[in-house]
Amino acid sequence: MFELTMAKGSILQGVLEAILDLVNVANVDCSSKGFSLQALDTEHVVFLSLFFPSEVFRSYRCDEDCSMGIAIADMVDLLRASNDGDIITIKVTDQNFEDITITFESPDKTKTTDMDLQLVDARSHRLKISEWHDMESEYQAIFCMPSAQFMLNCKSLSVIDDDVVIRVNEEVISFSTKGKSGCVNISHVPNKTDNPEKASVTLTHMRGPVSLTLNLRYMKSCAKVSTLFDQVKIGLSTKLPLMVECKIAEKGYIRYFVAPKITE
């Protein structure tokens, strides 16, 4: 049996809402340690992997590891029907592994709403990329910045063009674009420390200058999720997809891996 409870408006609900523009179906794995989700966008440019440790939920129980495919848009639609103050329970019983049950309980416990959501096949969303998760040292540069600043950069650049070039070297981290109507270049002088301050842009890992070109549509989508958190960590390498990561509590994370654009 698997069962988790959370308050309406909790971080999981916020994240599920924020990933909807990229993801329809996700593969969810539950273990005693927590709730993880993997999903691939329909164009196979972005892979999303998140892990919510059990302690971030109001209560959490998982007797046996389980894996299921969930139509995220349908689940979010159901969750939206909850009222302020409701406690939301998501449950899968061993006897019935064809759907999950979502329950809302009103704060005064006088009203309960039960809904069943059919599970779907999401095996194609399961990429064996676990090795990427421990590949921080393989990235040529990793920096952290306030997620509000990341969102602002993406919005400012998308006025001009669809792409952003992110360049990182020891002296500067820049976001730039060039379009028909002009160009924008946003430069940040980074701090260099292992303990990034919340308000600053910090270069935490540097093996050499690197630059990548990315579609701003995907970057804005990553930025949308990141604004649920204070800071975002971005890793660049010419041999790996761009990594955008936010930490959830001590052990949890949400990570996007975004394939860049190349010059033909």
Partner: peptide, 14 residues
């Protein structure tokens, strides 16, 4: 012109 890469270019074991 720029071409959008797919994740499969980085990873084959799907």
């Amino acid at each position: 012109s720029r071409k959008q890469m797919k994740l499969s270019a980085f990873f084959s074991g799907k």
